[in-house]
Design a protein around this nucleic acid. Structure first.
Length: 829
DNA sequence: GACCTGCTGCGGGATG
């Protein structure tokens, strides 16, 4: 990857006089110019592309939006100039706000400009107006932009484009949505090779990679990185239990600290309570309301499965300081800035440094104000993690976001889009693709596969006309001749694939949100559950809507949603390992570690606290079998992979079965009989060759692949999601993608979409690259094998996790209670 | 059997 030139390369010449009207405008508003503004303007005026990296609330938007307005040739007031500035945002909620900001700047600097927003919920009249003529500045989403590029006349409509800006680029970067944006930008560059392209980002480590994806590998060397000054003061602290006695060693809900959380909410004017998963949001909202019934109406909850209308109400309440507290998931990480938020609580592990800072930034959202976040640990070891997070955040050890490389499903979708967008010549489009970072090194064979796939449907589907989507004419131009196929394609544009879900609605027709079909399928009419902050009772299910009414009886049943799995980031895991090693040397530098000291000393007494270059392994005989517990501190996903790998390799030496368990700190293998672990054996377990082969052999790879393939099939346009306004046959998506997977596996095993699916399972579900790095680190570290007399503080959560799957809840609780009392008795001696 | 580690995000178009 070409290294980007540093911000210092921006000439520090005299201020460009062309920006004087903008300076005057800022002055008239009483705004100080932003520190990085002149550097951005100079780079822009020199025709360069670039990336502005600065915390939120520092004026990035205007720093980048103003140059195209100032540098554009003056127009006539009679006619708005055609599209000059394209603004891409990942969130519809952000589009309207940005539109207002751009309109205000344009009113002052280019009064004849028209500014408008185009997203999925743009009204049909506005859409019709735009279809006649696009505004001068257009704010849109990646999906809506791609839809514009799928029109035959897009080249005329974008003929005068002078700049493209991508907001929140860090959010898009590591996703297929980001690749979709890269492809769209490459299209625009095919029309305007020198198009200045700017990205805005916050909390990102790998700026060079982000810039390369934005500007393309050929132009990255001349592009600029502008760093906004990071003077924002951020305070990270922990809500600590008065005493570590009775603090749970396992679990993740964290209601133990409910009284402290309620007190904290009571003290502040407005609080955001972040949780990690949607069901936890529902649980905490209920618990807070139960503790303070007088807060009804002034506290709320917010997550991605709630009806948009309800979320808008909450966001509005925050903006106008009508709400005392909102319990939420990442759904409020980004987006509209809520100036009145005074305090942010984070229930449980923040999982990553960037995420923690992002959430902290939701408070103190004014220039000069301090952002503050309080971590609420849900179990003992999260106290170490909280202290580690603070250390890592102070050193700004942010996580890199790895860009996706050459996803074939996105490429296949793009080929059809280009065929619709005026058609393409194969060799021209290949050259265009090579100008993106994602496909710069696209293999010739992959290219031919993708092209053949849209033309013939590939080796297996060529008998079906609906898969012969693109026709190459006698003139060598690829087009989509079939109107039906064109329509289906436009409706399937995008890379976001969701689980099959059902609408939940009250009998008066008011919709509450969505839960997964599998959850509703397990209920009978009359069963009650907690959803959207209320307890409801299922009445009946009709056409993918679950009709409910307010429940007459309380219920503790909370839906669970399938989403992405978050593992502890490497940065945070390393910082945690460091603190554990310090504790071994008797250093307990923070209040969190002080509080945890007795527990860590118990761990040292029964087993060991590992040094940073040491790898702790515990062999423990329990009533339920013989356990081997390993602590690489590599995050839950990689640990799951390692557990699978070790179990497979151990079983190959001597046939046996294991129960596997993993969390963010380590993993365990439990067997009915003792598992001797000789030193030579460890070397074999850690051996590098055939890691991925053994991993796939040990996993239920077929099932994982089938699940993952759903996304591929949907993005590549192999399954159709149904028409808007009609019941969404999501079930059929599942069924037919599974069918296609089977067909490919049986009759076309060389199909490259299958290979991509395996790669995605390895890289994203199991974090195979991290797993490989971990294996290398473990090979280079000393193994410390201990034989504790009983489950240690490190092993205990892993055992509980294991039992959770094996036993019903009552017996789990009884079991955990028994283990706790045994441990307490032992610890006291 | 369900008191509990699976976030977020988008999307139509021809006709009158």
């Amino acid at each position: 990857m070409t290294p980007a030139s540093p911000a210092a390369a921006v000439p520090a010449s005299a201020p460009d006089a062309r920006f004087d009207p903008a300076r005057a405008w800022f002055a008239a508003q009483g705004h100080l110019p932003f520190p990085f503004q002149e550097a951005t303007w100079a780079a822009f005026a020199a025709g360069r592309s670039g990336l502005v990296h600065a915390p939120t609330g520092t004026g990035k938007t205007l720093a980048v939006a103003i140059p195209p307005m100032v540098l554009a040739p003056p127009g006539t007031a009679a006619l708005a100039p055609p599209l000059a500035l394209l603004w891409i945002t990942p969130l519809r909620a952000l589009a309207a706000d940005t539109g207002h900001a751009l309109a205000a700047a344009a009113a002052a600097l280019q009064p004849h400009w028209r500014v408008d927003v185009r997203t999925g919920d743009t009204s049909s009249t506005a859409r019709a107006r735009q279809d006649r003529r696009l505004p001068t500045a257009l704010v849109t989403t990646p999906e809506s932009l791609t839809l514009l590029l799928a029109r035959a006349d897009w080249r005329e409509r974008f003929a005068h484009l002078a700049a493209a800006v991508v907001d929140e680029w860090h959010e898009l970067l590591s996703t297929k949505r980001g690749v979709q944006v890269e492809l769209a930008l490459a299209r625009l560059r095919s029309l305007h090779p020198a198009l200045p392209t700017w990205g805005l980002s916050a909390t990102l480590a790998n700026l060079d990679a982000a810039l390369a994806c934005l500007a393309g590998p050929r132009r990255a060397a001349t592009a600029a990185i502008i760093r906004g000054e990071d003077r924002k003061k951020i305070v990270i602290d922990t809500l600590r239990p008065a005493s570590i006695e009775r603090f749970p060693w396992a679990g993740h809900i964290g209601l133990r600290l409910l009284p402290e959380v309620v007190r904290a909410i009571d003290r502040a004017r407005t609080t955001l309570v972040f949780t990690n998963v949607r069901s936890q949001t529902e649980i905490w909202y209920q618990a807070i309301l139960e503790a303070r019934p007088d807060w009804a109406g002034t506290i709320a909850l917010h997550h991605g499965s709630l009806e948009r209308e309800a979320r808008d109400w909450v966001e509005d309440g925050l903006r106008h300081a009508r709400l005392r507290a909102v319990v939420c998931t990442s759904s409020l990480d980004l987006g509209v800035d809520y100036a009145p938020v005074e305090q942010v609580l984070q229930i449980g592990s923040p999982k990553g440094v960037g995420r923690l800072l992002q959430r902290a930034g939701r408070s103190g959202h004014r220039p000069g104000a301090t952002s503050r976040i309080t971590i609420v640990p849900t179990q003992a070891l999260e106290l170490v993690e909280a202290a580690a997070a603070r250390d890592a955040a102070a050193r700004r050890l942010l996580e890199p976001r790895q860009p996706r490389v050459a996803p074939l499903d996105v490429l296949i979708q793009h080929l059809v889009t280009c065929a619709l967008g005026g058609g393409f010549r194969a060799e021209d489009l290949l050259a265009e693709l090579r100008g993106t970072t994602a496909y710069a090194t696209l293999a010739e064979s992959d290219w031919r596969f993708a092209l053949d796939f849209v033309v013939h449907g590939g080796a297996t589907l060529n008998a079906y006309p609906e898969y012969r989507r693109v026709v190459i004419g006698d003139d060598g131009i690829a087009r989509v001749p079939d109107a039906q196929i064109a329509r289906r394609h436009r409706m399937g544009i995008g890379t976001i694939v969701s689980e099959p879900s059902m609408t939940v609605a009250l009998q008066n027709g008011r919709r509450l949100g969505h839960v997964e079909e599998d959850f509703i399928a397990r209920l009978a009419p009359g069963d009650a559950f907690v959803f959207a902050g209320r307890t409801v009772e299922l009445v009946r299910v009709h056409e993918l809507t679950a009709w409910v009414r307010p429940a007459t009886k309380p219920s503790a049943l909370v839906p669970r949603w399938t989403g992405g799995q978050m593992a502890l980031s490497s940065e945070l895991a390393d910082a945690t390992r460091h603190l554990v090693a310090e504790a071994r040397r008797g250093v307990f530098a923070s209040p969190e570690l002080q509080l945890l000291r007795p527990l860590l000393e118990l761990q040292a007494r029964w087993s060991q606290l590992p040094e940073e270059d040491e790898w702790l392994i515990e062999s423990i005989a329990t009533r339920d079998g013989h356990g081997l517990f390993f602590y690489p501190f590599a995050g839950r996903l990689a640990h799951l992979g390692l557990a699978t790998l070790f179990a497979w390799r151990l079983a190959r030496a001597a046939p046996r079965t294991f129960s596997l368990t993993a969390n963010d700190y380590g993993f365990g293998l439990l067997s009915p009989t003792p598992v001797p672990l000789a030193r030579g054996e460890l070397g074999r377990l850690l051996a590098a060759p055939d890691v991925e082969r053994d991993l796939l052999a040990g996993l239920n790879a077929a099932e994982l692949g089938r699940r993952q393939f759903r996304e591929t099939a949907r993005i590549a346009g192999l399954v159709f999601q149904g028409y808007p306004g009609q019941p969404n046959p999501a079930r059929q998506v599942q069924a037919s993608s599974a069918l296609l997977y089977q067909v490919f596996a049986d009759y076309d095993p060389e199909n490259r979409l299958l290979a991509q699916t395996v790669r995605e399972v390895l890289d994203h579900r199991l974090e195979a690259p991290r797993l490989a790095l971990t294996l290398a680190r473990l090979r280079g570290s000393r193994a410390a094998l201990t034989r504790p007399p009983r489950p240690t503080p490190f092993a205990f959560p892993l055992l509980v996790e294991l039992f959770r799957e094996r036993f019903s809840n009552e017996s789990l609780e009884a079991r955990v209670a028994r283990m706790v009392s045994e441990l307490e008795a032992a610890a006291a001696t």
